[in-house]
Simulated assay, not measured.
Amino acid sequence: MTALKAEIIDLIRQEGPIGIGRYMALALGHPRHGYYMTRDPLGAEGDFTTSPEISQMFGELIGLWAAHAWQAMGAPARFRLVELGPGRGTLMADMLRATRIVPGFHAALSVHLVETSPVLRARQAATLKGYDPIWHDTVAGALEGPVIAVANEFLDALPLDQFVMMPEGWHERLVGLDDAGALAFGLAAASEDALRIAAAAGAVFEQPAIALDIVTQLAGHLASAGGAALLIDYGSIRSGFGDTLQGMKRHEFVDPLAEPGDADLTVHVDFERMGQAALKAGTALHGPATQRDFLLALGLPQRAQALSLKANARQRDAISDAFDRLIAPGEAGMGDLFKVLALSQRNLPPLPGFDLHRLPDRG
């Protein structure tokens, strides 16, 4: 039994069952035993791999997208390049390398990272040495003046609450203890009368309040101070019902209650609701698009070809494998499971990646 699991069991014995959101917050962010506070979870030796870790092409294209957005903003002399949940700093490093070709871009930017993990902050500092990144514990702390923000696999790790439709109405889904004293899912006794959403019996409704608050906060800042944001994650274009909570360890799905603190916990992002929140806060929306369509529109095939021309046979195979994984549909890749949504100040022109607009080739 993990140390955190024992602590959560003691907490439930003392206070009673807890909501899914609180359970996720403890499992991921507990100051001593939280999953993200104690390890680098990325890569083949970790529990999962993200698009930036698969190929430099991903970060390069995102960097050029950011530079295009900066130019569309009128190329402000000062702006913040912000990443939410920057992992090892790989995405930001690739973005910065690719944008060296853009006149004035680096002179105007300052790098800001929203990260709470001390382990990952250390990795980011090493990866981004020379760029003098500034870290923030909260999204609000990173927002000042014109901003271009990127969040890749950030929203999926934010705690949410779940509710289940029973014959008498919605009941909050909780984590409690079974007869043997083990962690188990259950339902609150009282119904949630405030949830006036029609659904069939057994339906699960997820309430991503923290993610919605962050998107609202980000969108409100962009609307008033200027800028754009790119949100990339796995999830659905349309809202619906269903339990999307999942555990991940060593690249395999695991029981979310089995090893809190030692396994990643994530949920699928409801992009329709994120977009509605951003619109309400005053920004324009671009997308959502699938990651496949987005990367193809940005010129992923051309970038892969350019890299392959300079590569040996082994490197060409790796480029081809990465290309397929980034855009392949179904379980073979990330192409249709991952979605991309951009927010921007309403006076900005259309941004690349959501139509046939392609970025210039880096060569």
Rank of each mutant, 00 (worst) to 15 (best):
M92V: 11
M92Q: 10
M92L: 15
A93F: 01
A93W: 02
A93G: 05
A93N: 02
D94Y: 06
M95P: 04
M95W: 02
M95S: 03
L96Y: 07
L96Q: 06
L96D: 06
R97I: 05
R97A: 15
R97K: 14
R97W: 09
A98H: 09
A98S: 13
A98E: 13
A98P: 02
T99I: 05
T99S: 12
T99P: 01
R100M: 03
I101E: 12
V102F: 04
V102L: 01
V102G: 02
P103L: 10
P103E: 11
P103W: 09
G104I: 04
G104S: 03
G104K: 08
G104P: 05
G104D: 13
F105K: 02
F105Y: 10
F105M: 01
H106Q: 14
H106E: 12
H106G: 14
H106L: 14
H106W: 09
H106A: 06
H106D: 08
A107N: 13
A107C: 10
A108G: 08
A108I: 01
A108T: 03
L109I: 02
L109T: 04
L109W: 01
L109F: 03
S110G: 15
S110Y: 04
V111M: 09
V111Y: 09
V111E: 07
H112W: 08
L113A: 14
L113V: 05
V114H: 10
V114W: 04
V114A: 10
V114M: 07
E115A: 05
E115F: 11
E115R: 07
E115M: 08
T116R: 15
S117E: 08
P118C: 10
P118S: 14
P118V: 10
P118W: 12
P118M: 14
V119C: 06
V119E: 05
L120A: 07
L120K: 13
R121Y: 06
R121M: 13
A122L: 13
R123H: 15
R123F: 11
Q124H: 09
Q124Y: 06
A125G: 09
A125F: 00
A125L: 09
A125M: 04
A125Y: 00
A125N: 02
A126I: 01
A126P: 00
